[in-house]
Nucleic acid binder design. Structure first.
Lengths: 220, 220
DNA sequence: CGAATAGTGTCTGTAAGACAGTATCTG
DNA sequence: CAGATACTGTCTTACAGACACTATTCG
């Protein structure tokens, strides 16, 4: 049984005015000390229940963020990806509203547009690329994009999130039909967005879909 | 850096008259010696390029099968899944035509219906369950089921495969429209299936889709 | 009241499914 | 030529998108 380096990495994604962004931190130790990279670390077999638990711990320790949505992405492995030796990274991706990152105490956490990434160590570029395509793909037929917004949000806000992720505009009537069909939103009465126009109804994700996604038969 | 047991497991799936089946072998070593389990084994960091390479090696060594379609499924991990200690299994799933399994020399390889599985060691039941739902889900919108058939096949055969996987009958006209839209099949001229009826046109997967799937916009 | 955005009713075109007809083989 | 299955043409139905209209706020 040859020794293998076992790590987890987390692609923490959020949506800002700049578009889709990923959180990077400067590495504290060699190799690649000082280079911006995904938050990650060794699996602690003594204390972590499983890899998901390790990912949650690493994300909280390095960014101060307890992400409500955390899903396994894929496992990256091999002899070539880490100069220290044959290694495994069980990669996860997490979604948070942009406000969550703005509010964290750790100002080491820096957001980078996924379309303009700096040179990244290991295969972190591949991990981010895989995370972004997974997010875009799942957005076509699930409630996943809701997790990029805060606790309450309006349908026009949600539609803009879907549109940015899918890279195309969506018919308003169809979008609202689909949201009704998905039956995943609870209206929040008496609350509205303000501005020089008609305010929009606020909604909240139904509790059943906070961790479990709602899927659509036919997409969009 | 705590020690972690690093393994790969492969859910080798095929379609027979009994429905969807998975290949199991009796374990040669403790723990669970003699119990039917997925083909799997330690990662050999000295010789395996990466985990996919390990999965291919393990599958070939244990079953004699070089599966043309092999895809990473998910990674199962934790302190509780293996009595030897904190472990990782990078799970893959492979699809082969039933004839490939019938032709292998190894008669230790036994097919089991995925609906009537014996008690399984570790979390192999979860791995098979995840593999089956991944296969069923991807069958709704991709060319994946083609890999359960041999090199050449007819459209009625392919439709039956889709129907068994999705558990519902498909409209013949719609099915053929979708296959035309996917544009992934080459007709094999001059060859036909025989029987007491009109023979069907034979097709072959276009080379571009032997490893890469073709996806549909709207499913089915 | 005008500008701006939210929300809805309705029409139309496209795509999926039903059905029935034709085609081609065996015995 | 009867039976069986492959294939195809066409009608109907369901759903997605376009469009326009109403609703509600601010200044």
């Amino acid at each position: 049984m040859d020794p293998v380096i076992c790590t987890v990495d987390v692609a923490l994604l959020t949506l800002t005015a700049e578009g889709l962004e990923v959180a990077l931190l400067k590495r504290e130790h060699a190799p690649f000390k000082g280079v911006a990279a995904l938050p990650g670390g060794y699996i602690h077999a003594r204390t972590d229940v499983d890899a998901r638990d390790a990912a949650r711990r690493v994300l909280l320790d390095k960014t101060g963020i307890a992400a409500p949505y955390l899903e396994q992405l894929a496992t990256f492995s091999g002899a070539a990806r880490d100069p220290r030796g044959w290694s495994i990274s069980i990669a996860y991706y997490a979604l948070v509203p942009a406000t969550t990152i703005a509010q964290t105490e750790r100002d080491e956490v820096r957001l980078h547009s996924v379309d303009r990434l700096p040179p990244l160590p290991f295969d972190h570029g591949d991990i981010i690329g895989t995370a972004v395509s997974r997010l875009r793909s799942k957005s076509q037929y699930s409630s996943l994009p809701c997790h990029l917004l805060g606790d309450v949000f309006t349908l026009p806000q949600l539609q803009r999130v879907y549109e940015v992720l899918m890279g195309e505009s969506i018919n308003k009537v169809s979008f609202r039909r689909k949201m009704t069909e998905m039956d995943m939103l609870d209206p929040v009465d008496g609350q509205f967005e303000s501005g020089a126009h008609r305010p929009a109804q606020l909604y909240r994700l139904k509790p059943a879909f906070r961790e479990q996604l709602q899927l659509l038969e036919r997409g969009l």
